[in-house]
Nucleic acid binder design. Structure first.
Lengths: 210, 210
DNA sequence: TAGATTGTTAATCGATTAACAATC
DNA sequence: TAGATTGTTAATCGATTAACAATC
């Protein structure tokens, strides 16, 4: 889509939200200018890496001065695509799904426009104006609405099938909370939040400290 | 603690839960033996990398044969420390905290033994036998009980303070869901689940496909 | 024994760090 | 102008891949 951007490595991309967070804090603290050296102190990354990372996207700084906090914050947001709006649907309204939908309420730019589940106990429930629908309606909903992101908060047994339906429905990206590695054809982007993987990694490091 | 293990790179460690997941599936499917080549096909990683990764911890395979699924599954679990038990407390019982606590119900080995919050509306609530306590009681609870893991599901403003209290209380690891990078002294391990970072990364890739 | 597949060493690739000339 | 700090090139470091001898 954005054909002008060269292929930047995932390691760099995954640091961008962290830069953005730090810059937002600086801005909140009333600091308007920052050097890579200071940003290094705050983030724990090296100044060199910060300059390298940012220069993948453009020369946002100024020699002898550093970076303008507000400007760089906006630039990083723009690179991530946070100046755009995304229509989002959620599939699976169990505890995790409910937590995620609540989480999204405060996320501007990410508009939750439908929730699907298969449990009769949940269908009809409402969350700030959004009714929980039966998953059978998903296909027709996708046909009638332009949806950008599908969130999978279902169990691992149904995740793959849901992903395929989302993909066929023309979705651009999937935020997957099910503990499986989903495979979809086409150019659908998948971002996994594997809670168990994270917890197990923590267990490892608890047993292998120092 | 486990002084015999040499320092294995984080990239390797973070692939272990994935290996374990694949092995569990194979086991469930009744497959008892697997080659690195087949495992490569399943995981999407190279056979070479799989063999390299595993050999950080020992020679679990057999030339001409491959790996025994059940045995390797157990070995990987052991490396991660999943043959041990962990006492866990949860701080913050909002939507995310409730989702995480529910998630933990099905995780054997991770025993949720206390929940803390500051909201009067939540204190006293009960979750399968565990009462929600006031956060003021946390310090004394940590003094009286041996707790291994503290989960932070509070807002970003209080996360750092909570982390320090957990650290002083002798905790070994922190599973942090707050959108901040926590700093603690000593040998406390921190594992972050930064949902926003994940969502923003997804947004980037949606706008930069192919 | 012959075939298969590991464990491991060596080669390659990519990411991070260091250095410094450009420039505000 | 002098000082500071970027943008960028070169050096280093680490992780992945390839290759193959060891061995079941």
């Amino acid at each position: 889509m954005n054909s002008k951007s060269k292929n930047v490595s995932p390691s760099v991309i995954r640091r961008l939200p962290k830069y953005r967070r730090s810059l937002l804090e600086l801005q909140t603290a009333g600091i308007s200018r920052i050097s890579s050296r200071e940003l290094s102190r705050i983030t724990g990354l090296t100044a060199s890496q910060i300059r390298q990372d940012l220069n993948n996207f453009g020369g946002f700084g100024q020699q002898g001065y550093g970076y303008n906090v507000a400007e760089l914050f906006a630039e990083v947001g723009g690179i991530l695509g946070l100046d755009k709006e995304y229509n989002v649907i959620l599939v699976g309204f169990g505890n995790l799904g409910q937590a995620v939908s609540n989480y999204l309420q405060n996320k501007i730019g990410f508009n939750l426009c439908a929730i699907f589940d298969i449990s009769q106990g949940l269908i009809g429930k409402e969350l700030s104006g959004i009714k929980v629908r039966h998953a059978d309606e998903m296909k027709s909903f996708l046909a009638e609405n332009q949806v950008d992101i599908g969130i999978i908060a279902a169990d691992k047994g149904s995740a793959q099938k849901i992903a395929e339906a989302l993909s066929e429905g023309g979705i651009k990206g999937i935020w997957n909370f099910a503990p499986v590695d989903i495979i979809v054809s086409g150019d659908v982007v998948i971002e996994n939040v594997h809670l168990s993987d994270s917890l197990y990694t923590l267990a490892y490091y608890i047993n292998n400290r120092e």
